[in-house]
Design a protein around this nucleic acid. Sequence first.
RNA 1: GGGGGAAUGUCCCGAGCGGCAAAGGGGGCGGACUGUAAAUCCGCUGGCUAUGCCUUCGCAGGUUCGAGUCCUGCUUCCCCCA
Length: 417
Amino acid sequence: MAAPQSDFLRILTERGFIHQCSDLQGLDALAAKGDVVAYVGYDCTAPSLHVGHLLSIMMLHWMQKTGAGKPITLMGGGTTRVGDPSGRDETRKILSINDINANKDALKGVFAKLLTYGEGKTDAVMPDNAEWLTKLNYIEMLRDIGRHFSVNRMLTMDSVRLRLERDQELSFIEFNYMILQAYDFVELARRYGSNLQMGGSDQWGNIVTGIDLGRRMGTHQLYALTCPLLTTSSGAKMGKTAAGAVWLNADMLSNYDYWQFWRNTEDGDVARFLKLFTLLPLDEIARLAALQGAEINEAKKVLATEATALVRGREAAEAAAETAKKTFEQGALGDDLPVVTVPAAELAAGIGVLALFVRAGLVASNGEARRQVAGGGLKLNDETVTDPQATVTEAALKDGVAKLSFGRKKHVLVKAG
RNA sequence: GGGGGAAUGUCCCGAGCGGCAAAGGGGGCGGACUGUAAAUCCGCUGGCUAUGCCUUCGCAGGUUCGAGUCCUGCUUCCCCCA
């Protein structure tokens, strides 16, 4: 098609958010009038969202910012009780209602950083599909909703087909997930006038099933828009590190570590990530992406600070950047490094180096610490630890702190408490 | 309902004549080289109060000086026949 008329789709296209759309022209017309009501569903499977979820939040952000319409962040309080089989090899563990509710409360917070909630036309709202899904009556649901679904067609959906082809278990409860998600779309269309569902490309099947159901149940025209799944240029699935997922919530991953995640981006991903995960104008991004060789590190710092500012706040981002500068460029101690306090009495008595590194959370066990010492991976105040028997006392504290390092990038400060 | 096969290191895949903390990959972590990148090379990848001890091969028993390995029962999954 020709270039989109609406700012919303033009920006999404330029920045690389669009993977697939059911009807780009139709959606463009709605966006140009400011009549889009877009929803993205977030299941409550963990106590925080991670960077993989960030793309869809960014899409909602751009939509609100360009005045294209109203964002709906749907909490999956109901669907989480069922479990989405999309993109999964195995049945999800069934979570207790208590866990789901706790998760839901924990992940709500991050949305307000990127979206404005309220009563106005383009203000965001946050319903929970438990409101309607838990009230469904089985027989009524089969008659009103189930009759519109063809099992033949459901069996051809990727989320189902892949499991069947690989002879992997697919339970009946999971098989129903797409029906519930489709019904969500219809329900949101009725309650809020929603006309667009967005999500990762793995959600395409579930979304178009919702469009189909809407047509059969007589809603207005619905649209689908998906973004690419996040991978690094070397093909690895993104958002996971050794320590686990890259969480958006600060209590799950420190500001400093979040900043470091972006700072360590591969060269080949810098331009793409700047477009997706920052609000910097495209000409500025083009300038940064053109940097060659070691200079591209400047672009990575900008990426890290901007991306962190977006989710954690400008102040937190600056602090993390400052700490990184001190730690890596000046060999000094940054204020933002994680701190572990050890009781003064224990320090006076002397504590084993291995135990200290375990205490700091840098290694999982004495055994691992021992192996890392053998491999030269542990440092105390920038000096490689060579003797696993050594003990550390308050003499190791300089100006009240000792620096423990694991590898070149992970540092923890120890203080007497 | 009948017959045949499978389950291994708590990330995954996978070898394993009765002597096994258990081959080999992948992934991950550390080191060297670099630019806090990529690629490459090297090392590590059950726990502990550590020349030793403890816990691991679906579950529960049994045989044996000794069981991932042999026997019995059970669970789960797959294939073929009904």
